[in-house]
Amino acid sequence: MSAYTALVSAHLKILFRSREFLFWDLMFPVLLMILLGSAFGHSGFSATVGVSGHGAVRPLILHTLHHIAGVKVVLTQAGPQGIRSGHLDLWMQIQHHHVELIRTASPTSEMTATIIQGIIDQMNLAMIHAPAAISLHISHLPGPTFNYVDFLVPGILAMSLMTSGLFAGGSLVTYRTQGILRRLQATPLSAPQFLLSRYTAQLVLALLETAILLGVAHVLYGFSPRGSVLAFVICLLLGSTGFLMIGFFVANVVGTPEVASTVNNVINLPMMFLSGVFYPVGQLPAFIKPLSAILPLKYLADALRNIMLASQTLPQQTQPLLVLAGTAVVFGVLASWLFKWDARRV
């Protein structure tokens, strides 16, 4: 075994013995995906209708409502207060042949009212046996459809590659302040050998993080990536390289682990929220959009999504891949140029 392979295996051992690493790099992205996926993953229509009163039409209306996907009926004797408290989206009072609807301004409420209006119109027409003057048929567009989880998984994956790259930089600062790097410097080991070994370990981690995240997404949400596996792997390794180099760069311009973690947060948080990880960049206010266009994480998330969801090829991702490669080269060169073994003096 060479110095390089011995160091790669040492790095991996150290990481897997670190609780911070196991939680923040391996578990946290998965938990975040489950949390957001469960909270916002149900993109289907869902509404609760409170029904009170009696009348000949009541059983027929209720029977029809039961067949409409997403509509839940609650039988109640109370008045329309449930709407105010938010438990109900719509309140319906039936008296003989009169139906009274009370709705709010919410889109769900409006949509439910429209559905019920349509049902009553149909029932009226059926009762007078009127022939339909205009016929209507609705069909689905064939091809893949995306839901929120499909959007979220590549985003969370990109985010986890970013945080673990920055985290690696932070640990380099700790090694330096503790004198661990100085001791390594006193051996025949060279700086490129050391950095390359840490980089290799990072690529192994990137693949592992990806496997865990995609595995959980598949089991919980039936998520299956499309597109070329090779294009996907190249894209995620390139992204991982870019963020590790940013981490290495930060590690060599700051003095203490505390400052490193602050700087990393300053990089981490805007990227996380402005790069289209959790919601599309299109939903951001117009004045922020130019900012998100300069964040490398946006390009990684975009490229991963385009490959995993739309089966796009690498040549179609030239722009984001060039941005990521540029990030890796610029910060990699700066980091090796500024590299310091020793915290005490330069």
Partner: peptide
């Protein structure tokens, strides 16, 4: 061979792993 002041080894490696790692540098 060096035994320097204010230096340290990776805290999470065992004694044997540490010596074996350093051995590979030579």
């Amino acid at each position: 061979g060096l035994c320097l002041q204010s230096t340290a080894f990776f805290p999470r490696l065992t004694v044997r792993e540490t010596l074996s790692l350093y051995q590979h540098f030579f």
